[in-house]
């Protein structure tokens, strides 16, 4: 299934990656080639097979309802959370103004 430049532009927008016309023109045939190649999966009869859900048989563990039991997974660490922020002000992350 080949993808044209318009489709790539749409996907890029969905993925929030800004791309110039040049880039789109370059990327479209590359993506087409890859997608054409993965199409061969369609040959496989999978009508009797379930999609894989867990690669190694294992069940989902549930954790106890405890606050900050492990500092690595708990809260109360605003400085650490904001430490790398490009724009942190008054304890918030700042972003360009959003109109809802």
């Amino acid at each position: 299934m080949s993808v044209d430049q318009t489709t790539v532009a749409k996907i890029a927008s969905l993925a929030r990656i800004k791309m110039s016309e040049d880039e789109l023109a370059r990327m479209a045939p590359e993506l087409s080639q890859i997608l054409d190649w993965v199409e061969q999966l369609g040959e496989v009869d999978t009508s009797q097979v379930e999609p894989m859900t867990a690669v190694i048989p294992n069940t989902l563990r549930l954790r106890d309802d405890a606050i900050d039991a492990d500092p690595l997974t708990g809260g109360d660490k605003r400085d650490a959370v904001l430490a790398n922020a490009p724009a942190a002000e008054h304890g918030f992350f700042g972003v360009p103004k959003v109109i809802e």
Binding site: L41, G42, V44, P51
Partner: peptide
Amino acid sequence: AYYNQAQRVRTLIA
């Protein structure tokens, strides 16, 4: 067509 089929094929590979 893509993702689910790939995960089914993955089951076959396993």
